[in-house]
């Protein structure tokens, strides 16, 4: 037990550096991904059939492809198309693409959950289509979507561990490095798991509290 603690103390700084990379990648890819998700959600609801079809195609491709493949495609595949990304940029690109595809459905569901009477009222007071969306539908729809979006964001944060496959120096890569150098795989991965949990568990609790608060101002 004492051994494990001192082992942890020895390697904790290295793992914390990895955790920092994980957090950075998550914080970069989640906003980009959610923005993409909003664009896709609006594209799917577009009146233009070609735009709608294109968006559906992109979203289904993004949802149908494992993130691990997206990561490897961004890191190993894109250079052959002349675009060489650092492991950091490739991870952000792949996670953002995957997040965009998944969150587009969350956002679309949120927008559709806004009662139709809201749109009718907006039409009846003469708002343009753009203003209907901006002032009435998006604020209410996104509010409905916030808790599942945050929940998904926690999954994206955990997903950064897949960066291990493209030599991204995130938490799991570092843990693996330590494990292969010391042969103490078990304790180092337990520590890595604890570090993930230290962020994810409080985040989950916060999300459920926020969910309760946000439910106050939704239309009946």
């Amino acid at each position: 037990m004492i051994d494990t603690l001192s082992f942890w103390r020895e390697w904790l700084p290295l793992l914390l550096e990895g955790l920092k990379v994980s957090v950075e990648v998550a914080f970069a890819s989640i906003p980009i991904g959610i923005f993409l998700g909003l664009v896709f959600a609006l594209g799917i609801q577009s009146k233009s059939k070609p735009l709608q079809a294109l968006t559906v195609f992109v979203v289904e491709l993004g949802r149908g492809t494992p993130v691990l493949i997206l990561l490897q495609f961004a890191y190993f595949g894109l250079p052959s198309a002349g675009l060489a990304l650092s492991s950091y940029a490739a991870a952000v690109a792949a996670l953002a693409a995957s997040t965009g595809a998944y969150t587009s459905e969350i956002i679309r569901a949120g927008l559709e959950a806004v009662p139709y009477g809201q749109k009718e009222a907006a039409i009846a007071i003469g708002l343009s289509r753009r203003d209907q969306l901006r002032d009435i539908i998006l604020p209410q729809g996104l509010r409905i979507a916030v808790p599942p979006l945050l929940g998904f964001s926690i999954l994206v944060f955990q997903g950064t561990s897949l960066g291990f496959a493209i030599a991204l120096p995130e938490l799991i890569s570092r843990a693996y490095f330590v494990g292969s150098n010391t042969f103490h795989y078990m304790p180092i991965f337990v520590l890595a798991g604890l570090l993930f949990a230290a962020i994810c568990v409080p985040a989950t609790l916060l999300v459920s509290r926020l969910e309760k608060r946000l439910s106050r101002y939704t239309a009946s």
């Binding site: 009718e120 604020p139 101002y217």
Partner: peptide, 16 residues
Amino acid sequence: RRTVGMVFQSFNLFPH
């Protein structure tokens, strides 16, 4: 829509 105002059975106020 500017000339004709409308009031609905279920009010449809904007809750946000």
